[in-house]
């Protein structure tokens, strides 16, 4: 039989098989900011992956002839107090940024999923206990939480990942639980129960897929936050240890010279700001694309 309402139908099809480029081309018209932000974020990602080929110098190569040199043909973004090329350090720094951002969000999302799912599916004391645990994480801003953690675990990039990831469990768990409660009340879950589908299977096939998807969208939005917190940790000297080319660390190192050689802090600072803004716009765009309510209003 013929399909009545094609408008809904082929929207569904297109959603499922998007080649990124075609998707971007279609979006450029409608949402230029989203496309620009996506391109910038991808450029950073590219820089992180291909840093040794893209960067003009090694991250820790010290040029004794160019200490605190202003931007020039040899050093496009200038050098720092050790004569290290800022552009190269920023490029290598993207590796830390993405490593920490992605890993900690994965930890946060996984932990949040487990706790949120458990809290959403249980009643009574178990649920109460889990939610108070989540409240405890949420009570402190993620930065303070991470600082507390680092002070226990000690500095180092892996510790930063654990600390930031743990601090993110709270907000993820909250949204997952809300989603679980909402999905659980849907008729299709009840219908499966009526057919005798057992509980684990209902969770696995019916609840989980409907929760994981919004969680993934949420995760893209939270990457920016994770990066910001990890940079703040490094800035405070609690995160990545020198001489690693971490952006937070670089901003902190340049702080002493901020009035005479502003580019030492300025270059990594600008890179951080640019990446965070871009990631936020991308995250919002992704959410808008997949949230049927927002999409309907466009």
């Amino acid at each position: 039989m013929a399909i009545r309402d094609l408008s809904g139908a082929d929207r569904g099809v297109r959603l499922r098989a998007p080649t990124l480029l075609r998707f971007l081309a279609r979006q450029l018209d409608a949402r230029p900011f989203f496309v620009i932000a996506t391109v910038i974020s991808l450029a950073f990602l590219f820089a992180a992956i291909f840093a040794p080929w893209v960067a003009p110098y090694a991250p820790n190569f010290q040029d004794p002839d160019a200490l605190m040199a202003p931007p020039s043909a040899a050093h496009w973004c200038g050098t720092d107090s050790f004569g290290q090329d800022l552009l190269s350090r920023v490029i290598f720094g993207t590796r830390y940024v993405f490593l920490i951002g992605f890993s900690s969000v994965v930890i946060g999302a996984a932990g949040g999923l487990a706790i949120g799912l458990a809290a959403g599916l249980t009643h009574g004391a178990v649920e109460w206990g889990l939610m108070r645990f989540v409240d405890a994480i949420l009570a402190l801003p993620s930065l303070i939480m991470a600082i507390a953690f680092i002070s226990i675990l000690g500095p180092g990039i892996d510790k930063v990942i654990y600390a930031v990831g743990f601090a993110m469990i709270g907000p993820f768990a909250r949204t997952v639980r809300a989603d679980v409660l909402q999905v659980r009340a849907q008729a299709f879950v009840e219908a499966a129960g009526l057919m005798g589908v057992d509980r684990l299977r209902i969770i696995w096939r019916h609840i989980l897929p409907n929760v994981v998807f919004p969680l993934a969208v949420q995760a893209t939005i939270r990457i920016a936050e994770a990066i910001l917190v990890s940079s703040a940790l490094s800035f405070l000297g609690l995160g990545v240890v020198p001489p690693a080319p971490d952006w937070g660390l670089m901003i902190s190192e340049g702080r002493a010279f901020i009035s005479i050689v502003p580019w030492i802090s300025g270059v990594p600072g600008a890179a951080l700001a640019l990446l965070l803004i871009s990631l936020s716009i991308v995250g919002d765009g992704v959410r808008e694309q997949f949230d049927p309510k927002l999409r309907a209003n466009r």
């Binding site: 039989m1 013929a2 399909i3 009545r4 094609l6 408008s7």
Partner: peptide, 10 residues
């Protein structure tokens, strides 16, 4: 009658 309206593109 069998079936439904023809699809918009067809």
């Amino acid at each position: 009658p069998e079936g439904g309206l023809p699809a918009i593109g067809a």
